[in-house]
């Protein structure tokens, strides 16, 4: 029997990100979700959790955490990311200029842009001191 929901709360460091990335991949593989949809979820997870790790908290503390939930529905996957870090709405981030050549391109700044373009829907809310991000990737039959 396939599990339909995966959830885990992790510390905000890159070792934890690696572990949860692997766990989510295994969950998707077990549910026979691969290819493009799996890539998009993995990317959204990495980009958004990386932002929380880098900018969410001023002081490293074992109490800092991110909760990740992946829900598998018949026609879509929903990735929910919740953290108690600084208020940050990625939907308000200015898109980078992706038209420049090598000289003009600054290093970095494309993670949110990639996530927004590669997924089908993204919603953000701030509730009780928590950032709640919900990202949808449609499953094509």
């Amino acid at each position: 029997m396939n599990r339909k929901t995966f959830t885990a709360t992790i510390k905000t460091d890159f070792t934890a990100l690696e572990d949860i990335g692997t766990a989510v991949r295994e969950f998707l593989t077990a549910a026979q979700v691969g290819g493009e949809a799996a890539y998009k979820i993995e990317l959204a997870l990495e980009e958004m959790v990386t932002n929380v790790i880098k900018y969410g908290y001023d002081v490293p503390d074992d109490a800092n955490s991110v909760t990740v939930t992946v829900s598998l529905l018949p026609d879509r996957i929903v990735l929910a990311i919740a953290d108690t870090g600084h208020e940050f709405n990625p939907l308000l981030a200015a898109p980078p200029d992706t038209a420049g050549g090598l000289d003009e391109r600054p290093i970095g700044g494309v993670g949110i842009h990639l996530t927004r373009k590669m997924t089908d829907a993204m919603t953000y809310s701030r509730h009780n001191g928590r950032n709640l991000l919900s990202i949808t990737v449609k499953l094509t039959p």
């Binding site: 990495e46 990386t50 090598l102 000289d103 290093i107 993670g111 990639l114």
Partner: peptide, 19 residues
């Protein structure tokens, strides 16, 4: 099989050095 913005970042740094 997979690249994220962190991977793109490295490729851009390398390309700038090569240039």
């Amino acid at each position: 099989e997979y690249i994220s913005s962190a991977g793109l970042r490295i490729l851009l740094v390398v390309a700038k050095r090569v240039q």
